[in-house]
Design a binder for these strands. Sequence first.
DNA 1: CGACTTTGACCGGCGC
DNA 2: GCGCCGGTCAAAGTCG
Length: 312
Amino acid sequence: MADEEKADNSHFVAESGWGHDLFGSGDNYKENTILSEFGWNIPAESSGGVCGCDGGFLDLSRIQSDLAPDDYASSVPDRSDDVTMSRSGVEKIEVEEKVSTASVSVSIPSVSSSSSEDKPEKSTASAVSSAANLPMDTASKTKKKGQKRIRQPRFAFVTKSEVDHLEDGYRWRKYGQKAVKNSPFPRSYYRCTNSKCMVKKRVERSSEDPSVVITTYEGQHCHHSIGFPRNGETTATVFARHLIMNSNTNTSPTNPPPLLYDSTRSSLSSSHPQQIHNLKSHYKEDQEHHVQVINGEGLLGDIVPPRMRNNG
DNA sequence: CGACTTTGACCGGCGC
DNA sequence: GCGCCGGTCAAAGTCG
């Protein structure tokens, strides 16, 4: 837990359906959510919100109920959460607006019918055939890679922490590490140790603000956490609750509590409006940092779907 | 000895 | 078509 205690300033950035974990699910989400637990009031219109990001608050519970993981994966444009795509998409972002409002952002991806993952895998046949020309071990590897890779919904936490790998109640196995372009810090890839659980997460440290750790989750746990045995908790729930508790119990000018950011309105949501004002005035520089970091690293592409970026 | 990390190679998508 | 880059694999190494 020492790791978690070092996280002193956490921000939640949800991408896609996973955000619901923060807010509970089903009809009781208002009563049961973490946010309400801590006195955060989501406007009533949120219950009729739009996951397509056309306006209004985000109906996270609805997304969960309407979109099973598989359905979601097939309905969300693959490129909406693809880093590669974000390299171009980032340029379209109205950074100033983000700067003025968000140190915390919660976003839901646009949902459309197109997905590159659903498109016929044009490379499947070629991959298999080409594998025949490769050494045995490589060929078998290629065969696996020839399968469709289903992208799961993602969300990211932006956290100020001394440690890269924040304890979130689940066990993770590191399966890769890559150098990140324009960053001295590598990006680490983790997979849930539960063999039946396909959840992944990646952790990278901001190049511009080394104190900032960006943790991106992908997928949804099919089992309970080990450290936080509440029924039905998922990574998002556990992690977010911890982060919220952490910052709420240690709120200070340098440690603002997380806020709900409605990217469709470019506004912050909080039970204490003055808090927003104070945070904006006190932490504008810090917020700029976050935005720039996300923007510069291209991670925003993982966090904010293209449609949302365009709509502001 | 099992679980986990490290690390180089590989794959696929995308921009030029 | 080529190169870049993010993401993944899996063998080898490390740890408890």
